[in-house]
Computed example of a mutant assay.
Amino acid sequence: MDDEFGLLGEAADELGLRDPIPAVRRVDTTVDEHNVSALVWGASSPRAVFLHGGGQNAHTWDSVLLTLGIPVIAIDLPGHGHSSWRADGDYTPAPNARAVAPVIAKMAPDAEVIVGMSLGGLTAISLAAAVPDLVPQAVIVDVTPESPHRAAELGQLARGTVALIEGPQEFDSIDEIIGLTAAAAPTRSLSSIRRGVIHNTRRRPDGRWVWRYGRFREAPAAQPIWDSLAVTTAPMTLVRGGRSPFTTDEDAERFRARPGPTDIMTIEDAGHSVQSDAPLQLADVIARVLTHE
């Protein structure tokens, strides 16, 4: 493995995992003259596809995927990670779904589940409505179509990734970014935060550090995504973070009213970034979805 994957051993040790680390490689695909980058875990046909949240990248799933130990792909959404940025700054769910659909069709045609967190979850909903054959079932992590509005309501009270997205975009050092991230996510280990920051930043030629994602021009509007959800029939599991304010009881019940089978569960000790706060518990949920327990 090259340097990009050199931190996986540290993550595995932190999780108490002793199994060999699977082979992981980065694969780039051109879609409409844009690059869509993905991490491919394992050598077999992927059983699952993972879509991260806004301001994150495919490495946000590392701990979950180390725990699961199955072949998967984790995609960098447009404007994030190693995928191309869009000139129009439109990183909303519908164009995201159009960008990832051909990648999934090519690289994970037999995937059994699409897992999406926050923006990735809304992208999965849009994908399920537009190309239902690519979404046999889905795990939607701490998001409903109303969540961007909830985030806007919170304003300065927002914590975690949401607060960081709205904060400074340039920094003198990577340690400055680690400090800000630790303050926004006080329940996460410093080593986990450091790994996340390393994967989610880059150093410019002038020596300044910047995030490895494009800033949103506007949040996704709720109604088009509710409309998409209303035509989805694939089984879906909505996983809520017990400490997260972004998915309310009211929104969860509206989510449940979709025509397809729907389970709703809560991981009590997790905030919005469930994959970072409770990777073992989230991996267990996904494993049970895969085995139809």
Rank of each mutant, 00 (worst) to 15 (best):
P132M: 12
L154S: 01
V139M: 06
L282C: 09
Q275W: 04
V49T: 02
P136Q: 02
V162M: 05
R98G: 07
S63C: 13
G16I: 06
P148N: 07
L7K: 05
D32L: 10
W61E: 07
L229F: 12
P46W: 02
R47E: 14
P78K: 02
V139F: 07
I198E: 12
T233P: 00
S276P: 00
S276L: 15
S191E: 11
R25A: 11
D172Q: 05
A11V: 07
D133A: 09
H52I: 00
G42K: 03
L65G: 01
R208F: 01
F171T: 01
H52C: 06
F255Y: 15
H34Q: 14
E4F: 11
T123E: 11
A152V: 03
R47F: 01
H34C: 12
A94K: 11
D76G: 12
D249T: 04
S37N: 08
Q56N: 07
R240V: 00
V27N: 04
A129D: 06
G120S: 10
L119S: 01
G167D: 09
Y213N: 00
E146F: 00
E153F: 05
W209H: 13
R202D: 12
V197Q: 02
E176L: 00
A23S: 14
L65K: 06
D142I: 09
V162L: 13
R243I: 00
L154R: 13
D13Y: 08
A287F: 04
W61V: 06
I174N: 02
A151F: 07
I267Y: 11
A11Y: 00
I225V: 15
H52M: 00
R25I: 09
L282K: 05
A185K: 10
A23M: 05
L127V: 01
E250L: 11
V31N: 06
A74E: 11
L39K: 06
T144M: 08
W41R: 08
A183H: 08
D227F: 13
I177Q: 05
S191M: 03
N35F: 05
R202S: 09
G242Y: 07
A163C: 03
V210K: 09
P186K: 08
P259G: 01
S45P: 08
E153A: 09
P20T: 00
R202N: 07
